[in-house]
Design a protein around this nucleic acid. Structure first.
Lengths: 222, 222
DNA sequence: CTCGATTTAATAGTAATACTTTCATATCTT
DNA sequence: AAGATATGAAAGTATTACTATTAAATCGAG
């Protein structure tokens, strides 16, 4: 699975010029991931990115109209990638319970390998999702952006897994709540384990996040 | 309970000058809550607040060193208030299960009344917690601020309720994860229900958030 | 290989933000 | 009434998040 030369297509509304269409574009995305990780989203600027890649600020603006737009692009890329992994990993598996467990693991485990079939480092991107993604959708423009389809990929992933829940228990009332709780919850737990450890029970090498949410889902949907 | 003239004390590290010590200070806090709700945290500025209260920007800086500091103050006020309600509502209740249910309800229900024993509107403050609180602790300075005790109140509330979980099932491995998942999850669900409804199953007047999390906790800790 | 189109770079500029500083004035305290 | 403290007014700074203009480099088609 990991080495297939797949290609992730991103909704053209999410960029001004497709960053995949040029070396500069790829460099922008690739380096922005590193810099957002290092500096945090607030301290990251297009000016600094320009300096880092030896390119001009104004050139970056031809690809993304703002750093917010770039973050939204990255988030969409991430969810497209997760969706691909999800579909691939659950194809030909008949048991709904097995499929659901695969999905929960995918959402809650730490990303530890960069498949490098693209210019995007998935380990770092996962870290950005954990630390910065809430900033993308907690803005005053959320409704407008949602209308434009900026969060479609994420919503589609939640829908797919909610359907698995309903396959197991068609009477379960809150499948979307459950799945979005697991996804956002797992991100928070990873963040807390680094910065506010007394809010969590994560222990090195014990896979607690995956175990906790897997168990929680199984018990809740009965 | 609601009409007791209680007083909430805030850690002095969280302000430069105590806003409760003057009319101006109270007006700053009171009006900032309204403005953050109206404008969102990003568009809210001390300059705008100064205009709104007919006071000078520089005077506001004498109370809070930045708008981030003000947000952290508000969050702490909120958690102190919740802690008070929690302790009050669970005193003299012997059943650990009952206590836990009271706590979960407190965390997940919408705040609908402003007790107005203070200058703070708790309905609006709850909305700020839902929409903006993640911005307070998703910053590069989190570790430093955590060391200074900025998030102590929140952590103490989580600890109290984790202890209730352990009272019911002393072998449960992940009490902190469970409680922080419920708290953050409930905030997300409220936010999603307004802005990204396909990520949730909230319905008007059906109390779904409370029901979902109450049920989830009961099943998970067994 | 060259002409025209496209892409990128360089430079400058703008409005707003998030403060800081200084000094004057008002108010409150004893 | 004097001194201390709180607030206001005004100006200033560095940075941000862009936009605009023009020139240079590069690329692709005939």
């Amino acid at each position: 699975m990991e080495s297939l030369p797949i290609h992730i297509t991103i909704n053209p509304e999410l960029y001004t010029k497709n960053p995949e269409s040029s070396d500069l574009g790829k460099k922008i995305v690739q380096t922005s991931i590193e810099m957002i990780n290092d500096l945090g989203f607030e301290s990251f600027t297009f000016r600094k990115l320009g300096v880092a890649i030896g390119s001009n600020e104004s050139s970056i603006y031809r690809y993304f109209e703002s750093k917010h737009a770039l973050l939204v692009y990255l988030i969409n890329w991430y969810w497209s990638w997760i969706e691909y992994k999800l579909v691939f990993a659950t194809t030909n598996i008949t048991s709904a319970k097995d499929k659901l467990n695969i999905a929960i693991t995918l959402f809650t485990q730490e990303v530890k390998e960069d498949n490098s079939f693209t210019f995007i480092n998935e380990i770092l991107l996962n870290k950005i999702i954990i630390s910065e993604s809430v900033k993308a959708y907690h803005t005053k423009d959320i409704d407008e952006e949602n209308k434009k389809g900026f969060y479609k990929t994420y919503k589609r992933v939640v829908q797919r897994v909610s359907d698995m829940v309903l396959e197991i228990n068609p009477k379960f009332e809150f499948p979307h709540m459950l799945i979005s709780t697991v996804i956002e919850g797992a991100h928070h737990q990873r963040y807390f384990s680094q910065h506010l450890p007394s809010l969590t029970d994560v222990e090195e090498g014990k896979n607690n996040v995956v175990r906790f949410y897997t168990d929680l889902v199984q018990k809740t949907i009965v």
